[in-house]
Design a protein around this nucleic acid. Structure first.
Lengths: 198, 198, 198, 198
DNA sequence: CATGAATGAGCCTTCATTCAT
DNA sequence: GATGAATGAAGGCTCATTCAT
């Protein structure tokens, strides 16, 4: 007696997530080529063959993760507007969220797309869509307000935001928690870059 | 006219460098597994077979590069003591040197060793040797002097230095020059983290 | 309202035919290995799993079709004795029947058994049973009568019949209708081989 | 000490032929999918990997053979104009050549291209180039002369030639020599189709 | 020494078959 | 019974490494 449509779909969705989660772990630490489908399927606890009912190829799996990474980073950044407090408080909170978050693996993934020649063209293309300008536009109102009320340092806003994301991305890419020696700087230290010295 | 012993050795040395340089380029952008020996030999302008007269395996080639990366980063850091000027000037100069330098590929390499599971155990071991404590010890005198004369911010010295290297490593790992959107922050912005606000 | 025993059996029989018919189409055009069970089940409009309640394996399905092909060709040839008219008329009629018939797919199947190494031993064995001698024996009386009454050409009867079946088989194997360029020769042309020139 | 350029090229050419010859045997008897690269390499007496230095894929290997088959059949047919004797003698000789020849495997190959859905589009395309009209044009002069001098039967020349090639193709496709029971009809029997009865 | 041909282990992917529901 | 999810054994292809020349 077959399952009904809805149950089936739910099970399929869960499996899909299961695979994506496993793939993210393996891709992040081994790269597109270094990741073996056998590793992913083992991590997901299923057979190799089954993965191909959900993703038609290793590349598709990879690209799906890249899409999520980009979408997540955009949505995460956008949250700043819902946050309470002054511009500096908002920025601090956003930074803590990003650095805290489990999104590290996604940063590693995006780093691979950016620096590696072996990822599919399509993934490269996706990344271009998420240009720095996009993030600058999202944060611009907050920085403007911060400069106006004197919390944030003077200077070219685009440069400041670009610097912010570059530093944050660098830190996230280092994938610090699992790394001996390195440890994430405290957010207050980082914030000094953007705050008006008094 | 056959070359004499010395000339022969010199030619061997040159070739070795040639191979290492080619390998660095390829490893940095493709990772250990993504890099094909054929790519490296082509980049080096020699046949595949010949590479095996200089390095017994791909792993050995990789490990040799990791050794150089570590050695280079230590020597580079150590230069700070020969630099002229105040502590802050020294730190600024060192930062400019690191960010400027062509050593980006080495940072990518070390990033791979740190984050990737596909790298030989031996390479992982080498990295442990270059612990954060090593760098902290090298910069400690400069930071102490800087705090004493009021140029540098108060606070735990180890934390400050660790923050310094973490931020710098992150930036270098992003491999920025070839990346659209990202651009290296100006050193003055970064230095705000460590300078006493007045 | 559950079906009774008999209805059930009838449904099973229909389904079996449905599967065999679908399998014949797919096997004929793609060969034993090229045919995927998924294609057959789709063509038959049922699930893959269900096929295994009717045929225990792909090979069994294939062999069943080969048995039918052989049986059909023997029964078809035997019909000549029920046909009206002179020997030449009988032969012409038989030829038209064979060439006309939808049995092309069976010819393709038998061709595969004959020429392909990938077919199960058992299928090869079945084909041996349907030797040329069997067909010669069936047509011998007709040819003898035709030679006696002067309609058919003189010559070794076995050779003539063998030539007949070989030419016909070749034409059927070409699977002409779906092929551009080739077209079935008119039966009258073919019959010239066997008729006495006058 | 490497071989000189010419020796190298010759060795490469021999290897190429070796592989093509092995591939023809295996493809002809097992079809595109049924043929395993391991079988071909074993037949050729080399490793699997080496084949990929000469042909970039199984499909390319297959297509190369199809090209040869087509080219060979065209060139073979064209020979008729160099043959001595009357039109009927020419046709008889050509038929003997075709049926005699070791080209059977090529006919099997072309048959697969014609009837199978699993061959690459490119191979299908090649076959269209070698249309029946091409062959009709090549033989037309001979048939015309034969009809004029009374050797060949009256009737539509295109139909006669088409019938000729269809019958011959059918016979060749049966791959008779290796087949029990079937035997190639004598050419004289076949020729009756085209000769004027007297 | 230098080349690139040759090998074979291993990976992605497909698909016959089985199994849970 | 009926479905389609799940498995795992190949097969095509790549590439590090070896070897003949």
């Amino acid at each position: 007696m077959p399952l009904n449509e809805e149950q089936l779909q739910q099970k399929r969705d869960e499996r899909r997530e299961q695979i994506l989660s496993a793939a993210l772990k393996v891709f992040a630490r081994r790269g597109l080529i270094g990741a073996k489908m056998s590793m992913i399927s083992e991590e997901a606890g299923i057979s190799q063959g089954l993965m191909y009912r959900y993703f038609s190829s290793k590349d598709e799996l990879f690209i799906t993760l890249v899409e999520r990474a980009i979408q997540g980073s955009i949505e995460g950044t956008r949250q700043i507007h819902q946050m309470p407090g002054s511009p500096l408080e908002k920025l601090t909170k956003l930074t803590e969220l990003i650095l805290d978050e489990e999104g590290q693996l996604y940063f590693l993934l995006m780093h691979q797309v950016r620096t590696s020649d072996e990822v599919p063209e399509k993934a490269k293309g996706l990344l271009e869509y998420a240009s720095m300008d996009l993030y600058i536009d999202m944060l611009k109102p907050v920085f403007e307000e911060g400069q106006k009320n004197g919390e944030l340092a003077e200077g070219d806003i685009s440069e400041l935001i670009s610097c912010y994301f570059t530093v944050i991305s660098g830190l996230m890419t280092l994938n610090i928690p699992k790394t001996q020696g390195f440890q994430l700087p405290r957010v207050e230290l980082l914030m000094r870059i953007f705050t008006r010295s008094q």
